[in-house]
Amino acid sequence: MGAYTLKRLFALIPVLFIVSIVVFLITRLTPGSPAAIILGQGASPEQIAALSKEMGLDEPVVSQYFIWLSNIFHGDFGYSYFLNKPVLGAIWDNVGPTVSLAILAQIFGVAFALLFGIYAAKHKGTIRDESIMGASLLGISIPSFLLGSFLILLFAVQLRIFPVSGYVPLNAGLFEYLKYLVLPTITLGAIQAALITRMTRSSLLDTISENFVKTAKAKGLNERTIMLKHTLRVSFLPILTVIGESFAGLVTGAAVTESLFNIPGLGQLIVSSIERRDYALIQGAVLLITVAYVVINLVVDLLYAVIDPRVRNSYHD
């Protein structure tokens, strides 16, 4: 298993190399000068040229790339002139809200999905099953900005239960922290909940018809034990894949939710850095997100082994 992990980590190197070239080229080929944006309207060409030079943008693109790459090997991901701080520091400042939101959305999504997925599977073909499936289809189809706007309108503007927008870190108190994250969590987690509900239901239905479940029933085990201890465990592998993929998506794709609820997370940071042509920040953030994506997927793959002994054994073959 150790060898497998190492192999996967080594496979990350060419991926990162290709991503670094692509993101570097995209930022450099997109029109718009970061120096002109920093200096604003009325800046003279001389001022823009001077700042571009200070930012190292007067060098040929190829040498800019290798300077950037060699700095990364020394742990220096560059400097954000807009935020006036190193790229790693800027990303670190914005990771907390995104990870908080992603974890809460995932907990919400999984809890909701397991509850309703199991319930739907258990009552297959009934109106309750159809209702849950209909609701989950709606959850997949509804755009997050629309759901978020609706939640804001109902729970923040009309009922005044939750704040409209903003973020309070955990050290300001658990209640305040959660109060600001409830609506974004539901907004971001709804699509995960819907997806995992459908996956849980179909996976459970596949397993229910297996012989070992029939045997368990014949042995007189009660239905709850069969469902939770035997059926769900076997059905969990495909569910885990969806959870893993969706969690990586939550961490990396929360930009719309963050923007709607004004949460200072990674998504919002990347969107604003693209608008400002903050090259160093765009490059650093995309590279680190790639690492996060691959690592999360690797962790999910390793979790297979924990859950399923057959997968565990295959690592030794």
Partner: peptide, 18 residues
């Protein structure tokens, strides 16, 4: 002065007193 890019969020915020 908070930087709120989404207009509907700014409008909802002023409606609720935030």
């Amino acid at each position: 002065i908070s930087f709120v890019s989404d207009e509907s969020t700014r409008i909802s915020g002023i409606t609720t007193g935030q």
